[in-house]
Nucleic acid binder design. Structure first.
Lengths: 152, 152
DNA sequence: ATATCTGCAAAGACTTTGCAACCTT
DNA sequence: AAGGTTGCAAAGTCTTTGCAGATAT
């Protein structure tokens, strides 16, 4: 069971984050995410990969996204329908998103004021281990123009 | 404002919010929600109703919750697993929640600062029709004590 | 050589929907 | 009586999992 093979100098007993193998499929998933500058669902990502000629199974895409998200390489959020959306994460820090409903284009946003508020709002009510979820949705300029015929 | 008094004759052609019939099942759903002071999932609500001796179908509970939420009688949110949770809504206004992960107990919270921030954060990026989603999760005093053996 | 990873299909969880019978208005 | 409601079960989505074969180190 404890088959710690020879994989690294001074390796401690801690499990440690497993390194992911750079397989063709995993790289393709990252590539698909790189092409899009917004959040996309697993099924959409899979579809675009197939459309691009990649031979990948849907389950593999799900597993890759899960692994990448666990590794902190991707940001995850849920849309109104409950579907999970993924996006290449720019910074490793804590941040939120301004997401376009139309195309998924995303802008990372931050606000120390909101962070402070969220962190302190639990105290007066006796809540501990407080975490928060903040997402902002809107329509970006391009999509607004597209849906609103010129002259409107 | 979710209740149109009398659907008098000569009413406009607009569909208008249908009034819900106070059926045994619908009332029971409201009753189940009244008992709990926190967010609960449809399945959990159904289970507690059955446990209480109510004869209700799961689909009916789902439909009732949907209708009540549409009518503005309930607040809805999604937990980490994507499940929809419902709660009797105190005020009709816009507000957010501080929810206990353990028991679901909820405190409605507000912050004009956060509202302003959310409303204005889209502008500099060209986003319009901005909406936001904010939820705060934590552990309430009771649950914190329960999970932490005395003396710890 | 071996632990991973992939693909397909089956399974799982939550939610919605079709339809006949039932109940409220 | 008329039409909204209910209940059961089937269907639908998104996501996860089992397992044999392929793959990376």
């Amino acid at each position: 069971m404890a088959g710690v093979s020879h994989r690294g100098p001074g390796a401690s007993a801690v499990p440690g984050p497993r390194r992911l193998r750079p397989t063709r499929q995993r790289l393709a998933v990252l590539g698909a995410l790189a092409d899009a500058d917004g959040f996309r669902g697993a099924q959409a990502i899979h579809a675009s990969m197939r459309a691009a000629g990649e031979r990948v199974g849907l389950a593999t895409v799900y597993r890759a996204l899960q692994a990448l998200a666990d590794a902190g390489e991707l940001d995850v959020l849920r849309d109104d329908t409950g579907e999970l959306l993924y996006r290449r994460c720019a910074g490793g820090g804590h941040h939120h998103h301004l997401v376009c409903r139309g195309c998924g284009t995303t802008v990372e946003i931050e606000s120390s004021a909101v962070e402070r508020w969220a962190a302190s709002v639990g105290e007066p009510h006796g809540f501990s281990a407080v975490e928060h979820s903040v997402e902002v949705f809107g329509t970006c300029r391009s999509c607004a123009k597209a849906s609103r015929p010129p002259g409107a």
